[in-house]
């Protein structure tokens, strides 16, 4: 469905995307994550045909997004990271315009209803809240009835309820056979909807695969925390599988390797009759991988994406 082969994007001297390759298969939700300035938007814009690659090849639905743009644009829906629309246009007017651009548009009333914008149909875009504009942008991306959908920071500015509804919507669209490329900074979002992810940093893909694969590859510790008045932490450090112990007031946090460490800890607490409350076990997740990666990025690079 989408094939990206050794894609490189330059802005003058700056190499924003460096030899990136990945594929997205039909009916898949593919997540692209990474710190600010990692090159996600640049990559997606090349796939959308909005930006010319310095080198490498991209194919979407068998088309070259740069050369066959006109044909491609009838088949894809796009939400750009930071488009605003004309302030003095009414919501339904811009929806009607977009509907007139496509051969088989989805009726926009349905989409507005789904995004809870029906009441705002006759309002000027200037009078919409930030989240409502974001929703409108999603409506406009769905009007083409696309086969591939590109969403760059889809739920930025949406309230938690709206975000969960968005995820449901994405999963519904996927069931209908839509292929979706999602750029996101919310790891919970990516974990909730994406089949596979690619994690970018400084223009390169540092890891990709299913979420389990990506997380597994980094061998990050499981975090175990509980509250306890216990004084001496030395005994915890010697437990099998526990690698570090920290305490803040009466909150004790241990890092360990997987379930063995948990079992060892529980046994230790039991045997020594140590009082504890609120035991929580957090296995490594995408967020932990992200923080690990962002932490290792050179500081200058992680600041660049903020315009």
């Amino acid at each position: 469905m989408i094939r990206v082969d050794s894609l490189t994007v330059n802005y003058g001297e700056l190499r924003a995307v460096d030899n990136v390759s990945f594929t997205v298969s039909e009916g898949e939700i593919f997540g692209l994550v990474g710190p600010n300035g990692a090159g996600k938007t640049s990559t997606v814009e090349c796939i959308e045909g909005l930006r010319r690659a310095y080198s490498g090849t991209v194919r979407v639905l068998g088309l070259d997004p740069w050369k066959d743009r006109q044909e491609l644009y009838g088949l894809v829906g796009v939400q750009l990271q930071d488009t605003a629309y004309q302030e003095r246009v009414r919501v339904f007017e811009i929806c009607e315009l977009f509907a007139s651009l496509y051969r088989r548009p989805t009726p926009y009333d349905e989409l507005l209803k789904m995004m809870q914008l029906t009441a705002k149909k006759r309002d000027f875009i200037a009078n919409l809240s930030g989240g409502q504009r974001q929703k409108l942008s999603i409506v406009l991306a769905l009007i083409p009835n696309p086969r591939v959908l590109f969403l760059d920071e889809l739920t930025t500015g949406l309230d938690p309820h709206a975000r969960h509804r968005m995820w449901e919507l994405l999963l519904q669209l996927k069931k209908r056979g839509l292929t979706i490329v999602l750029v996101s900074h919310y790891m919970d979002e990516v974990e909730a909807v994406c089949d596979r992810v690619a994690m970018m940093n400084c223009g390169r893909i540092v890891s990709s695969g299913t979420i389990g694969e990506v997380v597994g590859r980094f061998a990050l510790p499981t975090m175990i925390s509980f509250r306890s008045p216990v004084e001496h932490l030395g005994s915890f450090e010697n437990l099998a599988g526990i690698t570090s112990v920290q305490r803040k007031h009466n909150l004790i946090t241990l890092c360990g390797n997987g379930d063995k460490a948990v079992a060892a800890l529980l046994r230790h607490l039991e045997e020594n009759e140590i009082e504890y409350t609120g035991l929580a076990v957090k296995p490594p997740d995408l967020e932990a991988v992200f923080l690990e990666l962002a932490g290792t990025a050179p500081a200058a690079d992680s600041l660049e994406g903020v315009k």
Binding site: L50, Y73, L80, D82, T83, Q86, F98, L101, P144
Partner: peptide, 15 residues
Amino acid sequence: EYREKKILKRFQATP
């Protein structure tokens, strides 16, 4: 305005 707000770019991604 259309250039700054990326409205032109948005239309570029339509037919």
